[in-house]
Design a protein around this nucleic acid. Structure first.
Lengths: 104, 104
DNA sequence: ACCGAGTATGTCTGAATTGACATATAGTAA
DNA sequence: TTACTATATGTCAATTCAGACATACTCGGT
C-alpha cells in the first residue's frame, strides 16, 4: 500500500473522516498532514480571490506553475516552507494564515 | 556580508527592530523569518514547560539533539517543516501553534 | 471539432535539509 | 578540580525538495 498515493488522494478531496483514520499515521504525522491540507486550501482560496493564475502566483514567488499545481494538490514533494511561502505570496494576511491554522 | 550569519544573530536575540530592517529582505522573506523565529521560541517554551531535555524531544520526534539545538538557534539549515514537527512533538496544542503564528 | 487558457502530472538535475557523529562549551554538584 | 548533564557547533553522506521542462488534461468560447 502506497502512502504517497494515498496522500495524493487525501489532497484531492477524499478526507472523509480525517487523515489519521484513513492512513496509519501517528498523531504528530496526522496533525502535520491536516495542517498542510488546511493551508493548501487557504492558498487556493487566496489565489482565486485575488484572481491570480497559477502562473501569476508562480512569478510572484519566483517558482513555476507546476510547483503551484503540486502545492495545491498537496503533493508529498512540497514542503511546509513552500506552502507557507505560497500562502504569503498569494496575498494572505497574517490573520488569514492564522485562520488556516485554526481550521487545521 | 553574510546573510546566514546574520540570521543566526537574529535568532540569538538581536532582533531589536524586526528582521526586515536589519537584513535586506523582501516582505515575504521577512514574514517568513519572523514566523520561524516566533515558532522557534514557542518550541523552547513548550519544551521547557514539559521539562523535556533536547535529547528527550529529539527521541520523541526521531531526530537528534544537535538538530534540536539548531532548531532552537533558528539555524538556517532547519526547515519550517522540522520546526513545526518539533513544536507538535514538544506537546504544543493547536492553540499554542496558533498563538505562535499570531505573535509572529 | 478546434483553439486557447488554465491546470495537472511525470521526470530530471542541482540545491537544500536531514540525522548522526564528534567535539566544544556552560553550568552544577561533590 | 573532577564529573556529570545539558546545550551548542561543525561536518558530512544520504535523503528530500527545488525549479524547470515536457506533456496531458479540462473546459469555455467560436
Amino acid at each position: 500500500m502506497n502512502t504517497e498515493k494515498l496522500k495524493r488522494l487525501q489532497a484531492a478531496g477524499w478526507q472523509t473522516g480525517g487523515a489519521k483514520d484513513f492512513l496509519q499515521l501517528s498523531d504528530e504525522e496526522a496533525r502535520m498532514v491536516e495542517l498542510k491540507l488546511s493551508l493548501v486550501s487557504a492558498i487556493k482560496k487566496s489565489r482565486i480571490k485575488r484572481k491570480l493564475s497559477q502562473i501569476a502566483l508562480a512569478q510572484l514567488m519566483k517558482s513555476s506553475q507546476s510547483r503551484i499545481a503540486k502545492i495545491e494538490a498537496a503533493d508529498p514533494s512540497v514542503s511546509l516552507d513552500l506552502i507557507v511561502r505560497a500562502l504569503i505570496a498569494s496575498g494572505a494576511t497574517t490573520r488569514d494564515i492564522q485562520a488556516a491554522f485554526t481550521a487545521g
